[in-house]
Amino acid sequence: MSKSIKLVALAGLLAAVAACAQQEEEYVVVEPEPISVEPVHTGKYK
């Protein structure tokens, strides 16, 4: 076979392998911030 046919066949094979390869899904875990209650000021001496 000629070199150009071999190169085209190799490129096609590489493209097929790349298309069939399993791709891992990326996921991001976001932890929620803790909920805190703001202190309520009721006066100096209460």
Results as ranks from 00 to 15, higher is better:
22 Q>K: 07
9 A>I: 13
15 A>H: 02
38 E>P: 01
20 C>M: 13
30 V>A: 04
23 Q>L: 10
20 C>K: 03
41 H>V: 10
8 V>P: 02
3 K>Q: 14
29 V>C: 00
28 V>K: 09
20 C>S: 13
38 E>F: 03
24 E>M: 06
15 A>N: 01
20 C>I: 11
42 T>D: 08
24 E>W: 05
29 V>F: 06
42 T>W: 06
45 Y>F: 10
41 H>G: 11
26 E>N: 10
37 V>D: 04
39 P>S: 05
27 Y>L: 09
33 E>T: 09
46 K>E: 12
34 P>N: 13
18 A>N: 09
12 G>E: 03
17 V>H: 01
4 S>M: 07
6 K>I: 15
23 Q>C: 08
5 I>Q: 00
45 Y>R: 04
40 V>E: 04
42 T>Y: 10
13 L>D: 05
9 A>Y: 07
19 A>F: 15
46 K>C: 08
6 K>P: 10
16 A>G: 14
1 M>I: 13
13 L>R: 05
11 A>H: 00
2 S>M: 09
25 E>G: 05
46 K>Q: 09
27 Y>K: 08
11 A>W: 00
42 T>N: 12
11 A>K: 00
23 Q>E: 14
36 S>H: 07
46 K>I: 11
9 A>T: 08
6 K>D: 12
11 A>G: 11
14 L>G: 12
23 Q>W: 06
32 P>K: 06
34 P>C: 12
2 S>P: 15
11 A>Q: 00
16 A>L: 15
37 V>W: 01
45 Y>G: 05
46 K>D: 13
16 A>C: 14
31 E>S: 09
40 V>M: 04
12 G>I: 11
35 I>C: 00
32 P>F: 04
41 H>A: 12
38 E>R: 03
19 A>N: 14
19 A>P: 12
3 K>G: 12
26 E>I: 08
26 E>P: 04
15 A>Q: 02
6 K>N: 10
18 A>K: 03
40 V>A: 02
12 G>L: 14
7 L>D: 14
